[in-house]
């Protein structure tokens, strides 16, 4: 319960102790101090990992690590939680897309964090993967930035994770990201993507992906890092303005503020739909790309389709 003072609407201390609060959470309504916020975030991430069996003994986890706040929080959190699992190791993978004025700063931040946490760190660039950086690939097609970048980033991550011997790929997706994806897939009428879980039907072909922070809001993650002096003050990706996700994020964020629980309810709806829909029945069967042999749903995988359209 919140200890808010009705005279001013605020709270002088944490709901759980006498320390000053750093954040107000509304589900349930409570104020938390820095120590209780850190404990709360890490306990909920640990619960998500245990309940969904996201990590198993002897796993080698590749953390998709951009150096931004979500992946930094994930790396910090996993570094603290993993001693609870037997013989689990971490490797941080940073994908350098080649975005001028943006990625250099985040890569520097990523290097500092991995050094501080003593985590093995590898980088892979779009130039390594496809011969050009993203800025060059996008000349004249800037509005497709997020889709082109997403396809190549997934591929780069997968290549680097295989090379590093990873058994899982962990991404820093948070509650806001997950709710946005549900709404975007619904708006696009894409039932297949809506009901596809991250590791559905993928064990034979792909390294399974896990999202330990999927139950934690973006704001909690930012606060979790800020109180540990680890919040990365970085520029915004210059291509974000082209993304449909930005519109959805603004809309959902306003809804969440007005109606707390909106994002969680969206995800609950997705889970309810998942239970009643056979993923295989609404998706194309997995095949092999005739160009590169990677698993895909059409004749060509997305990367080879992209290569073809780019003349690569």
């Amino acid at each position: 319960m919140s200890n808010g003072n009705p005279a001013n609407g605020g709270a002088e201390r944490c709901t759980l102790c006498a320390e000053p609060p750093v954040i107000r959470l509304r589900e349930p309504d409570r104020h938390l101090c820095a120590a209780h916020l850190i404990a709360d975030v890490e306990e909920r991430a640990a619960l998500m990992i245990r309940e969904r069996e996201l990590i198993k003994p002897h796993d080698r986890i590749a953390v998709a690590f951009s150096g931004g706040k979500d992946s930094t929080a994930l790396l910090v959190c996993l570094t603290r939680l993993l001693p609870a699992w037997e013989d689990v190791s971490l490797v941080a993978i940073t994908v350098d897309e080649g975005i001028a004025g943006y990625r250099d700063d985040t890569i520097r931040a990523a290097e500092e964090v991995t050094k501080k946490l003593r985590i093995e760190h590898v980088c892979i660039s779009f130039t390594d993967l496809i011969g050009d950086d993203l800025d060059t690939l996008l000349i004249g097609r800037e509005t497709q930035a997020c889709s082109v970048c997403g396809i190549l980033r997934r591929k780069a991550l997968s290549v680097a994770a295989h090379k590093a011997g990873a058994t899982r790929i962990a991404t820093g997706h948070n509650l806001d990201d997950e709710a946005q994806s549900v709404l975007m897939n619904t708006l696009r009428g894409d039932l297949s993507r809506l009901v596809r879980t991250s590791d559905a039907d993928s064990h034979d072909c792909f390294i399974p992906r896990i999202k330990p922070l999927a139950g934690i809001s973006e704001k909690e993650i930012a606060a979790y890092l800020f109180v540990q002096d680890m919040f990365p003050f970085l520029p915004e990706c210059p291509y974000t303005r082209h993304a449909m996700r930005l519109e959805v994020r603004t809309m959902l964020s306003a809804m969440e503020q007005k109606h707390p629980g909106t994002m969680r309810n969206l995800i609950k709806s997705k889970r309810a739909i998942e239970k009643h829909v056979n993923w295989r029945a609404v998706s194309e069967p997995l095949r092999r790309c005739r160009q590169c042999g990677d698993p895909c749903s059409g004749e060509l995988c997305q990367v080879c389709t992209l290569r073809k359209s780019l003349g690569k």
Binding site: P21, V22, D176, R249
Partner: peptide, 24 residues
């Protein structure tokens, strides 16, 4: 120091508003 939004501020307080979303 990080504070909840229902905190009261006054006088010489320096308030910093930090946007949290920037895309991965």
């Amino acid at each position: 120091k990080l504070v909840p939004e229902d905190t009261l501020i006054s006088g010489d307080d320096e308030i910093r508003i930090i946007r949290i979303a920037h895309g991965g």
